[in-house]
């Protein structure tokens, strides 16, 4: 894998980590992120391969079409999240986590069997809007920068503060007049949109999309990004996503042992850094010393 491709993958990791982080910021452990990632990927794959008007004059896939796919994927993901969010977000703690795992699994089985998703084979030959990994790296990191900006803004906004209040004590937050159900739903919808946008880029980048993308493993790996990096400030999941995605590649020199070492890192991370690598306190100390 070239360095630029790795950079793209790392960007995807950070984006998915932020998608898991947003519900977690209001105390909701939702593992639905890979499901919305898969939905975004299928939207991109289906639109770009079947809609001939989109595929341009043969001189490369037009960027305007890519932009259109991003909009459609965001709308689809938001609609699905709105419909599912209400009933699902009434569940708490581990029950919410498992209900969202169930959703991702149901989606996977449907995609594996239904005709329009290409079944087990999937969809091939997704057109390329960029000539090489460089273009993808740029697109991914622009999206990442936008999402980071949104998350950073959120910490100072009424919505972000409401989310933090619900995380600390939902009952107290509701007594203060915070509409907790609406706030949780908003976080869930934003999270879904981020995952779906990432899926659109990933489908083009990988050139193919199938039901093996984003299963249970992906749910847990993305959660590991957040826990490893730290779930109290947006910088944490970004760092976690970048580092853990790069890890198996960085460990390639150790050959067969790399996945064992990868497992050890995930095992020891929570024990050595229970708050994650980045906490607001560490960040403040760092700012003081600089």
């Amino acid at each position: 894998m070239s360095d630029l491709s790795l950079l793209v993958q790392m960007g995807f990791g950070a984006l998915l980590a932020l998608s898991v982080y947003l519900p977690l910021r209001c105390g909701q452990l939702s593992l639905a992120t890979p499901g919305f990632y898969v939905i975004g990927g299928y939207v991109a794959a289906l639109l770009s391969t079947s809609w001939s008007a989109l595929s341009g004059d043969g001189a490369g896939y037009p960027l305007t079409s890519l932009a259109l796919e991003l909009v459609v994927a965001a709308l689809v993901a938001a609609a699905v999240a709105l419909v599912l969010g209400r009933p699902v977000l009434q569940l708490r703690g581990i029950y919410l986590a498992i209900a969202t795992i169930a959703l991702v699994e149901i989606l996977r089985v449907l995609n594996l069997n239904l005709a329009w998703s290409g079944g087990a084979v999937g969809i091939f030959g997704i057109p390329q809007p960029f000539a090489g990994p460089g273009g993808y790296a740029l697109a991914t990191w622009v999206l990442l920068a936008l999402v980071c900006w949104l998350c950073a803004r959120l910490e100072d906004m009424r919505l972000g503060r409401a989310m933090a209040a619900i995380r600390d004590d939902e009952l107290a937050a509701r007594c203060m007049g915070i509409p907790s159900a609406d706030v949780k739903l908003t976080a869930f919808v934003i999270s879904a949109v981020i995952a779906a946008l990432t899926g659109v880029l990933a489908a083009h980048f990988l050139n193919t999309w199938n039901a093996r993308q984003g299963g249970f493993d992906a749910s847990i790996t993305t959660l590991a990004f957040v826990v490893f990096g730290g779930s109290r400030i947006w910088l944490g999941p970004v760092l976690g996503g970048l580092v853990i995605t790069a890890l198996p590649e960085l460990l390639r020199p150790v050959g067969d042992l790399r996945l064992i070492l990868f497992g050890l890192v995930i095992l020891l991370g929570p024990i050595l850094f229970p708050q994650g690598l980045i906490t607001p306190e560490r960040l403040a100390r760092l700012q003081q010393t600089l």
Partner: peptide, 16 residues
């Protein structure tokens, strides 16, 4: 939440 991740890490180590 931390147990979830660390036990998962243990699983990854064992399976591999």
């Amino acid at each position: 939440l931390l147990y979830l991740i660390s036990s998962l890490g243990a699983g990854v180590v064992l399976v591999n």
